[in-house]
Nucleic acid binder design. Structure first.
Length: 292
DNA sequence: CGGGACTCCTGCCAGC
DNA sequence: TGCTGGCAGGAGTCCC
């Protein structure tokens, strides 16, 4: 569920905790997440300084000293929990839901635990283990197999109507599937694809190559718009967050179509009803009246 | 090569 | 109340 805006919100929340700080100790509680963790993962993290915390698509990139970069992908259920050592375990800021704790205070799915200079503890917790962590030489990060084929960042100048037109040209697959393809544009997931198609009034079933220039332009703008609005909302939930109840607001976004099957279309001028269909084993929510 | 189906995993919820 | 089955989905892999 974490898509680009959620990952960006997590990054911003972690910045003051991690950037410029040393990882004083690292513990890994298993050898693999979705894939095997790199050899001696925890050992290689210990003593490293986080020089910069960056993001590419849905990947968090912690540039460390000694020319290593830690990649983090949250998958479906991954979260980075921040607490302050010396206080009660859950009293610190927590980036996402409160995690379930056993009696020892350790979370059931706490897979990697980092103690950070300054007293913060950062925990990678991931129930479904669709997430991933890796280490890769910083100076050849672009060759990492998970990063090498990613398309442009949707909020960068590289993502344009021209790029999208060229990427969709001649494609017969549904536009919904094309927008989920990270090689075309990187960082969108099921939710924001549904939202952007709604905003652009384009049916998720349309053949990718059949979009008019006007539709591609509208879609490009909508993709930017929904992501920027979600980051803004995440940012405000971060500012309002003081840690006691332990939950960020970004999974409480109110979406215009996603998850709204059977409800009236969010457009005042439209009296359609949101429908759900399954495309490539994934739910698409849309209004068949105004999305054509 | 494009594109669809399948796979991983566990929490949650509807239904009985 | 407790069990069961289905569903959620990012992204790689497999196969046609």
């Amino acid at each position: 569920m974490p898509e680009l805006p959620e990952v960006e919100t997590v990054r911003r929340g972690l910045l003051p905790v991690l950037e410029g700080k040393c990882i004083e100790s690292a513990v890994q509680n298993r050898l693999d997440l979705r894939w095997p963790l790199p050899e001696r993962f925890a050992e290689r993290l210990t003593g490293r300084r986080v020089e910069q915390l960056s993001r590419r698509a849905k990947y968090l990139l912690a540039y460390l000293d000694a020319n290593e970069t830690m990649l983090i992908h949250l998958g479906m259920s991954g979260r980075l929990l921040v607490s302050t050592v010396g206080r009660e375990r859950d009293s610190g800021a927590e980036l996402h839901h409160a995690a379930k704790r056993d009696r020892s205070g350790a979370g059931k799915h706490d897979h990697v635990v980092l103690e950070i200079e300054g007293g913060a503890r950062v925990v990678f917790n991931d129930a479904r283990r669709f997430g991933a962590m890796d280490l890769w030489p910083s100076d050849s990060l672009h060759t990492h197999p998970l990063l090498a084929r990613l398309g442009p960042e949707p909020l960068s100048n590289a993502f344009s109507a021209e790029h999208l037109t060229a990427s969709l040209e001649g494609k017969r697959s549904a536009i919904k599937s094309a927008l989920l393809d990270q090689r075309i544009v990187a960082g969108l997931g099921n939710i924001y694809v549904c939202e952007a198609l709604f905003g652009a009034k384009i049916s998720p079933e349309r053949a990718s190559g059949s979009l008019s220039p006007q539709e591609v332009t509208a879609l490009t703008a909508e993709i930017r718009g929904v992501l920027e609005a979600a980051i803004e909302a995440g940012g405000s939930s971060l500012r309002d967050f003081h840690g006691a109840s332990g939950e960020l607001g970004y999974f409480q976004h109110s979406f215009r179509v996603y998850g709204r099957e059977g409800q009236g279309c969010a457009r005042d001028a439209c009296d359609g009803v949101v429908e759900r269909l399954v495309q490539s084993a994934r739910s698409s929510f849309y209004c068949s009246r105004c999305q054509r």
